[in-house]
Nucleic acid binder design. Structure first.
Lengths: 221, 221
DNA sequence: AGGAACCTTACGGGAAACCGTATCGGGGTT
DNA sequence: AACCCCGATACGGTTTCCCGTAAGGTTCCT
């Protein structure tokens, strides 16, 4: 079992639940913090005292309040933590269920596990911690199915740039200027139209408004 | 203090935290369920045995799974519960932070309190329960400020109908037909254009895409 | 090098959306 | 009843968007 665990979770009740779940697993009493910056401080301190943490359990999104934070959210915390302690195991515990976001965590942040705050999260937390301890990755089952079912178009950087510009209110005809300034490769107006048509066709939409709503739902923007 | 409390919360860890928080308050051990339908069943049963609940604490959104539910979500649960027990006090405990949704709960569902799952939720839960016990309404402070700051346009039924149609892909010029069929009063194309212009002007937008994204963010659609 | 296939871009006609103006029609007032 | 006011609707011109077609470039293969 892990010997030194750090919990970063701003929600008071969730933080308490995590501690309780770990206690049931027979883990030693974990440290816990309510802010990202504190988490990094503790990780640094643990390394200095030659008692580094084995596992970091963190939420993704932290509420802003009067305590201005340098680190904004769990993803940045993980990035910062891995820079000073690359072997630190990381388990993300969050309500996020948008596939695009979670895929990014595994592919780019190399997290070891993701448990969604949902019905059987206590049970899945136990499984996740066990799996990670055996050097395996873990993803709570409710998400595995969510990722299968979508016949969704996979959005390129260009697609996201176009949609972001639309959401910012840029007229379609002006988007080429923006793309050129940012060195995004196809920048012609026709290419933008073609790309928008492709996205809408794949998803069965006819109007930009539908596409925007869809992208908001799945978390691309 | 309340004598009979029912918790409806699908998330395992949150459910446990709620029980623990109530225990700290000196409340008697509450009943707890993971499904809306179960909650209503228990409420009915409690009435029959002449030991009705004093307080219902419920989440807003429940995960769907193999257990098909008649009641879909906390709002419907509250509505159903108040039909059979109008004096039941209700406290909503949810992550929802979109003002439109929470306003609706107070104005239409007449809930007694709302605590957002956020940083100091444990503390606010205690305050909420105390306030409700004294026949007062309670709204966790993080939300009060959120409601002040928005210079937002308040959306009429017409506005929402128009935006919903856009999100469904209806061409703007066809929306009048939809409005007539549903007996929504101003149904002329010019009225729709005027309404859209007003919304965009108030919010500082120029394109429909921005408006759709905004409405998704604040939870109107 | 030549050529084929593909992607990007440019152009033009038609549809939709945008925007200002004018007309219509009901409610209230004098 | 005549009038005014205001919102809803209708109309026309301009802009933007949509979509098909064609021209220009690049890559890769023979």
């Amino acid at each position: 079992m892990f010997k030194r665990i750090l919990i970063a979770e701003d929600q008071e009740t969730q933080n308490i639940s995590l501690q309780k779940t770990l206690a049931e697993l027979g883990a030693p009493k974990p440290d816990y913090v309510y802010y990202c910056d504190d988490a990094l401080t503790w990780i640094k301190k643990a390394i200095k005292t030659a008692q580094p943490y084995d596992l970091l359990i963190t939420d993704l999104y932290f509420e802003e309040d009067h305590n201005q934070q340098k680190i904004d959210g769990g993803a940045e915390l993980i990035k910062a933590a891995k820079e000073i302690q690359p072997d630190l195991k990381t388990l993300v515990f969050s309500g996020e269920n948008r596939p695009a976001v979670i895929d990014m965590l595994f592919k780019e942040m190399h997290i070891d596990g993701y448990v969604r705050k949902a019905r059987h999260d206590g049970q899945y937390l136990r499984l996740a911690i066990s799996a990670i301890h055996n050097h395996k990755k873990y993803l709570s089952p409710d998400l595995k199915q969510a990722r299968k079912e979508n016949n969704s178009h996979d959005f390129t950087d260009l697609d996201i740039a176009i949609i972001s510009q639309l959401v910012d209110g840029t007229p379609q005809k002006n988007i080429p200027y923006y793309l050129q300034e940012n060195n995004i490769k196809p920048s012609g107006l026709s290419s933008i139209e073609k790309r928008l048509n492709l996205m809408k066709e794949v998803l069965g939409f006819s109007k930009n408004e539908q596409l925007i709503a869809y992208c908001k739902d799945i978390g691309i923007i």
